[in-house]
Amino acid sequence: MEGDRTLICHRCKVKLVKAQTSFEYLGHSFHSDMLRCPRCGQVFIPEEIVKGRINEVEMMLEDK
């Protein structure tokens, strides 16, 4: 996790803020708070979230 570091958008040079972000997979929609640029909307998803929670959701939905 990012800990005490402040993350900024590479393009806009503004601080990322937590915002509800939508995901869709295999016809199911989810939302979770992720860091997002308030200007351009670019979302930052940390690797540990992808390999952790998001991977878990995928496994729960994937076919046998």
Partner: peptide
Amino acid sequence: PLTRRGATAPAGGAF
């Protein structure tokens, strides 16, 4: 329901 016939996952998940 979580299963939908015909919906298949890409290899390794969405990402």
